[in-house]
Nucleic acid binder design. Structure first.
Length: 257
DNA sequence: ATGCCTTGCGGAGCAAGA
């Protein structure tokens, strides 16, 4: 079961590029972030003939998450428990040979820090931690896939000094991320390699892509039962060099499920 | 240097991203 996460940065602006990538990569499940679309205006028609079932949790202009699946989607839940005006979380169960709970998330950016946006980020992460804890009680395969807006360690940035005061890398942000991971999750990429340079985002500005000034902020965290099924992982980096790309690239895992 | 791009909204220039 190939499961990908991709911050698409506007589904309407990226429809053609997304379909091209789907045809090439053939993922079974895709968690999309920043669809920047309501459920009503989500362009379902661009996926016609590709065989995906789609669940969306959108809002006007900003944020918005969705899950695409070639294996169907069951028990869809939108949003973390508690009130939230921002569409950042969606869950569904996908059944292959094994049933896998998929959580697609778009964690708040949090800049500028300190400030109300940073407070919202940390509070959101605490709400996520509670939900992760609940889901882990089932002792089943669960995948938490998305744009975490967290640079876990200095090795995950080309120029870590540029991010010292940033909400993506502040010690309190990293500690909140570790509190989630330490519930028993595996960072799928770090289970495969300790190598530096595994970036998933390059800013549009200041020639970040040609200079390879990237950061790793898109992650797939696995429950113990999902980690036991991990067969392969990849970052589809070449997508970033195409015309009109998202500033993020897809990250995927293959589970023996 | 809160800009350097890019998208959405709406029909000009902001807000937001990271």
């Amino acid at each position: 079961m190939k499961i990908a996460t991709f911050n698409i940065n506007g589904i309407k602006a990226r429809a053609e590029a997304l379909v091209d990538w789907l045809r090439e990569a053939e993922p079974d499940v895709v968690c999309l972030q920043e669809i920047k679309s309501t459920d009503d205006t989500f362009p379902h028609e661009i996926f016609d003939g590709l065989g995906y079932t789609i669940a969306t949790h959108g809002q006007k202009s900003f944020n918005g998450v969705a899950i695409l699946s070639r294996l169907g989607l069951e028990d869809v839940v939108c949003g973390l428990p508690g009130e939230d005006e921002q569409a950042r979380w969606i869950e569904a169960t996908v059944v292959g040979r094994r049933a896998v709970r998929i959580c697609g998330l778009y964690l708040p950016n949090g800049n500028p820090a300190p400030g109300p946006k940073y407070d919202y980020k940390l509070a959101w992460m605490e709400r996520m931690r509670t939900r992760v804890q609940e889901l882990l009680h089932a002792e089943e395969p669960v995948v938490f896939a998305g744009d975490y807006n967290i640079i876990p360690q200095d090795v995950d940035a080309a120029k870590p000094e540029q991010w010292r005061e940033d909400a993506l890398a502040l010690p309190e942000s990293r500690a909140a991320f570790r509190r989630i991971v330490n519930l028993g999750l595996t960072d799928a990429l770090r289970a495969r390699t300790t190598a530096p340079g595994q970036y998933t985002f390059w800013d549009y500005q200041a020639g970040a892509w040609p200079r390879n000034n990237g950061i790793r902020i898109d992650h797939l965290l696995l429950s113990p039962q999902a980690a036991d099924l991990l067969r392969d992982l990849g970052v589809d980096k070449e997508i970033r060099g195409r015309d009109k790309p998202s500033d993020h690239v897809p990250v995927w895992i293959d589970l023996d499920a």
